[in-house]
Write a protein that binds this DNA or RNA. Structure first.
Length: 747
DNA sequence: CGTAGTTTTGTTTTT
DNA sequence: CAAAACTACG
């Protein structure tokens, strides 16, 4: 019990309040994970059976960690506590009871690729032009319906214009296809569970009894469907504890409804509210900066985090000519930190808005020999070779999974091409049977006579695998597939780098199967094919990080949520990139911008000791060079909290370049690249005295003045024949001046 | 039926 | 600048 003394006052309140609804408003770094784990431990210690506790976390990794921590405090019983993500919990429930809804318990879980395949098929069938209705857009629409628990019928009822009606029709057919394939997509996992509970009260009752104490973390990112799910489960005993921070709500695009947390007190009027506002993670400067940025948002609950930590470094801000130099600088800093023994590689994280930005950093890290890992982006499981092999496993596991069957029908090449596939599909549609069943009776289909023997041998092959699956372990089965299809053998013959990489991935897959089997054996569970496939579908990249290895992490700001690092680099701080282009334009409602700002808030508050913001003037984006201004979020940080890195070298201007990109490489590159750009801008700057012509710098740029030194341009006004420029100088404060006189130079 | 070569298209963010 | 989608040829 003594461990509770290490908690502060509100933290203790939250831990000790076990009965009835509880809302914990937990600011960034306020120790909410500690509170949650202690709360679960306290529940168990005060006699609640671990069996009766359900804790929902945002990632599987967080779930594992929480389970371990609870175990460390309580010692026993953690096995029985359910700690998992919404999706995992739902799968567990559905595997047991989905037959109530007419699905087979061996249902497949479709990922984005599979969904797209189905959508394409649906559009073809319904004669929907995918040039007009993009698959991606349709998927997003359908997903939103599901987030709100709209059935296809609901969607059709609410559809007023042509587009909406079409979308609803696609939705209906899409759901029909999924059912035919005995498959669920991610959103279905939640929606079908709610459906199960609503249609079968006895099932709901079972789980209500089972989960008398429910905890939901990251509550600000739940959508309506998840809210409904939790409400149903908690209805009976009302022991619902939700934890969240409205300032960190960053998943609105996937249906997260901030009202869930903002209106919790209305829905549960007897709820106790605890606010955790003391931050234990970051320095004062970091926290101050974060507070100032987020204060620009209007749609939020007023609050102010504070800390007893030291003041610490200022927020470092550096602007570069292009993305290469930005990456070089960041990598150089990490190298320096490591060399000077100030930080391990794992203490540094590089964050960015979009996954595409990881490339430059990856290249530079590779050259520098710094161990790193990219989180997210192209998922391991979405590589072709892996998807192919998994499609075999899925075909074996779920006889109705047409998407998988079609994928492997001609992989490896069996001489069964698109034409044949189309004819079989047509037959299957006409006769209302599954694709695989159509293959089995292919002799009935006159049009495919030529390929008949090939089809027959494929069918026999799959049937044989299914028989084997009953006696083999998952690993043995996978190895059998790799072997008997000749998949690996074909790749070996190719003998290219590409093929080698794929072979490595296949080995990796075998390793993962083995790891799954081991984990199940350790937990005393049964390793099943369904179980493995489920893990494959639901385990995100971030879940597989091991804390023991010393590598620098690269990831999106979204992925960084819930993590912390001593040294954080937030890169690509440019208007148009972050905040993203689509968030800037909408003048009507700036809620998109506010979401971006919350993302910025999340980013800054990941930092414990140091936060560095970087940006580039010039950047290659989808094959084109783009010019960007410094992100408005940088400007929202008070000037006195920012270090520009130039001030000290005022007397020796040349040194700043060495500081920025301290390799010969970078200076060569700059000379090379900068030329065309300089040629263009210099004459403009000179003539700007006469006419209001474009300046070489813009709002947010870092500039140098002969006398005042370095500063940031905060405003530019067009004043007749010249510009009036407002600059916030490092050492002289805010000055207004005419561009023609000031002869400011962009850095 | 399969492949190589060509054109088009596209960006948030994730379970 | 990619990846994906399409086309034309063997």
């Amino acid at each position: 019990m003594s461990s509770y003394e290490t908690l502060n006052q509100p933290q203790q309140e939250a831990v000790l309040h076990t009965e009835g609804p509880l809302l914990i408003l937990a600011g960034a770094g306020s120790g909410k994970t500690r509170v949650l784990t202690h709360r679960i431990a306290y529940l168990i210690e005060s006699g609640v059976s671990p069996w009766n506790i359900l804790a929902i976390t945002f990632t599987n990794k967080a779930a594992d960690e929480m389970r371990q921590r609870v175990d460390r405090i309580v010692g026993t019983g953690r096995e029985a506590v359910w700690v998992s993500t919404f999706h995992s919990a739902c799968v567990r429930i559905l595997r047991r009871h989905i037959d109530f809804l007419g699905f087979d318990n061996h249902f497949a879980i479709y990922d984005t690729d599979d969904q797209k395949t189905v959508i394409k098929e649906v559009c073809r069938k319904l004669n929907v032009d995918t040039k007009v209705f993009k698959e991606k857009a349709l998927m997003a629409e359908i997903s939103h319906y599901k987030d709100k628990l709209y059935t296809p019928e609901d969607a059709e009822k609410e559809a007023y214009d042509f587009n909406e009606k079409k979308t609803a029709a696609v939705y209906r057919e899409y759901q029909a296809q999924l059912r035919k394939n005995n498959a669920l997509d991610f959103d279905d996992l939640i929606m079908r569970t709610v459906e199960l509970f609503e249609k079968h009260p006895q099932v709901l009752d079972y789980y209500q009894e089972r989960f008398r104490y429910i905890c939901v973390d990251e509550y600000q990112d739940t959508n309506y469907a998840q809210f409904r799910l939790v409400s149903l489960l908690a209805e009976k005993y009302r022991n619902l504890c939700v934890v969240g921070d409205d300032d960190q709500s960053i998943y609105r695009f996937r249906g997260a409804d901030i009202r869930n947390i903002l209106e919790f007190e209305q829905i549960f009027p007897d709820a106790k509210v605890v606010r955790l506002e003391q931050n234990y993670r970051s320095t004062q400067n970091i926290l101050e900066a974060a507070n100032h940025v987020i204060a620009n948002n209007t749609e939020r609950k007023e609050k102010r985090l504070w800390t007893e930590n030291e003041e610490g470094d200022k927020i470092h801000f550096r602007q570069f000519l292009n993305g290469f130099e930005e990456a070089e600088y960041v990598v150089g800093e990490i190298e320096k930190l490591h060399r000077e023994g100030r930080a391990g590689y794992r203490d540094c994280a590089v964050l960015y808005r979009t996954n595409a930005q990881s490339r430059l950093f990856e290249e530079k890290l590779l050259v520098a020999g710094i161990p790193y890992k990219i989180v997210g982006g192209i998922n391991f499981y979405s590589r072709k070779e892996i998807k192919d092999l998994l499609a075999y496993l899925r075909t074996i596991d779920n006889a109705k999974d047409d998407v998988s069957v079609r994928r492997i029908l001609n992989v490896p090449k069996r001489g069964i091409g698109d034409t044949t596939q189309g004819r079989v599909q047509e037959y299957a549609d006409d006769m209302q049977v599954s694709f695989f069943d159509a293959l089995r009776v292919a002799e009935e289909i006159p049009a495919v006579k030529r390929s008949l023997p090939k089809i027959d041998s494929f069918v026999t092959f799959i049937m044989a695998l299914r028989t084997k699956a009953e006696v083999l372990t998952v690993r043995e089965l996978l190895e059998d597939v790799i072997d008997s299809t000749g998949y690996a053998a074909d790749l070996e013959k190719e003998n290219t780098d590409e093929a080698k990489a794929r072979l490595e991935n296949i080995d990796e897959l075998i390793t993962k199967v083995q790891a799954y089997q081991d984990a199940m054996a350790e937990r005393g569970g049964q390793a099943t094919l369904s179980g493995f496939l489920e893990e494959v579908a639901l385990v995100a990249d971030i879940d597989t990080l091991d804390n023991a290895s010393d590598y620098t992490l690269l990831m999106t700001l979204h992925s960084a949520k819930g993590l912390e690092f001593p040294y954080v680099f937030i890169t690509g701080m440019e208007d148009g990139l972050f905040p993203g282009g689509s968030a800037i334009y909408r003048s009507e409602s700036d809620s998109a911008l506010q979401e971006e700002r919350r993302l910025m808030y999340v980013g800054i508050t990941r930092g414990m000791k140091s936060v560095t913001l970087t940006c580039a003037r010039q950047r290659m984006l989808r094959g084109e060079v783009q010019f960007h201004n410094v992100s408005q979020f940088v400007r929202e940080i008070p000037r006195e909290l920012v270090d520009l890195g130039y001030a000290v070298q005022e007397k020796k201007p040349d040194r700043e370049k060495m500081l920025q990109g301290d390799s010969v490489y970078s200076r060569m590159k700059e000379a090379f690249r900068a030329k065309p750009y300089m040629q263009e801008s210099r004459p403009r700057a000179q003539t700007s005295v006469n006419h209001a012509e474009p300046l070489e710098y813009g709002t947010g740029d870092t500039v140098r003045h002969v006398k005042f030194g370095v500063g940031i341009v905060t405003d530019i006004k067009e004043g007749g024949r010249d510009y009036e420029v407002t600059v916030d100088f490092d050492r002289f404060g805010v000055k207004k001046m005419f561009a023609g006189f000031a002869r400011l130079k962009k850095i």
